[in-house]
């Protein structure tokens, strides 16, 4: 176990280094960040002066080494647009993002889990038909269409729920539905098909042949095994929701990390984009680690040293 964690830690360091390096140089290809910081019409000599003051006129490699120097001391630099430490700007928005992403995932796992199980255990029933048609539509509906529709109906017309912003539980309902729709659909479809796969697995057949009750077989063997691909998908999607819920955040005026990233890139706010990328990379690595640990719980045959 300790060896496993140490390897993972080393690998994570390489991953974070890679993310930082790619983001750092890719951003510099997008052009001069100073242009968007000053009012339209600012003369070039003053743009150059500000560029110099911010150190963007130095050779790229010097900037890169300098950035790492600061990073290793815990200094992520100041946002160009906000004039505030970049790291705290990202961390400030993390709770709102996490709240939305985790709640959506929870809803998706519960509803998707029930729907997938029902569909697999009651093959040919009306339940299966409803669950699977619902899942297909859920997977095919574009997020922003759904979000705007929900706002139009439940906020603008019916006045039942707030149109946006972060507040109490009522503010969460519409964005969670919007965000959970796709994940619910994919979880239920995946769970159904992997449950059906498990039926034909030798050890499940053996368990059944040994005379275990149908319930014991289902919970002890089938569901356990079928959850492994589901956990993988949940892990990947949680990672995506943490950084990529930008459309839902935009429609519901939700103060999350996704919107911050998009704004930061549009404003060429290099330090802020870099800080966000690092925070998200670490978060995603953490989620992946959790996923791997879950594998072990679910299937004792999987050993930690060779999980990919």
């Amino acid at each position: 176990m300790r060896g496993f964690l140490l390897t993972r830690l080393l690998e994570s360091v390489v991953t974070v280094w890679g993310v930082v390096t790619i983001v750092f140089f890719a951003l510099r290809l997008t052009g001069d960040p100073v242009l968007l910081m000053v009012p339209f019409g600012t003369p070039p000599d003053q743009i150059a002066q500000l560029r110099h003051a911010l150190g963007f006129d130095r050779p790229l490699l010097v900037q890169y080494v300098d950035y790492w120097g600061h990073l290793l001391r815990g200094d992520f630099g100041d946002s160009l647009r906000f004039n505030q430490p970049a790291l705290s700007l990202v961390l400030e928005r993390l709770p709102a993002t996490a709240e939305l992403a985790l709640l959506s995932m929870l809803v998706a796992v519960i509803i998707g889990g029930i729907a997938g199980t029902v569909a697999a255990t009651r093959q040919g029933s009306v339940f299966e038909l409803i669950a699977m048609v619902g899942a297909l539509i859920g997977q095919a509906t574009p997020v922003f269409w759904l979000g705007i529709m929900l706002v139009l109906i439940f906020a603008a017309d019916l006045h039942w729920l707030p149109s946006g912003g972060r507040g109490g539980l009522s503010h969460l309902i519409l964005p969670v539905i919007t965000l959970a729709a796709f994940s619910t659909a994919s979880i239920s479809r995946l769970l159904r098909s992997s449950l059906l796969d498990m039926r034909t697995q030798d050890y499940v057949r053996t368990a059944r042949a040994k005379g275990l009750s149908e319930q014991q077989v289902f919970f002890g063997h089938e569901l356990r095994g079928a959850l492994i691909p589901v956990v993988t998908i949940v892990g990947i999607q949680t990672g995506q929701l943490l950084g990529g819920a930008v459309i839902t955040e935009t429609i519901f005026a939700w103060p999350g990390v996704g919107r911050l990233i998009v704004q930061a890139i549009n404003n060429q706010d290099f330090p802020l984009v870099q800080a966000a990328a690092i925070v998200l990379a670490i978060t995603i690595i953490g989620v992946n680690l959790l996923v791997d640990l879950t594998y072990v719980v679910l299937d004792p045959r999987i050993r930690l040293d060779r999980t990919a």
Partner: peptide, 15 residues
């Protein structure tokens, strides 16, 4: 509120 339609919806919703 970045989304245009959400601003209008919010106005009509009383937000």
């Amino acid at each position: 509120v970045p989304e245009v339609s959400s601003r209008v919806s919010g106005l009509l919703a009383g937000d």
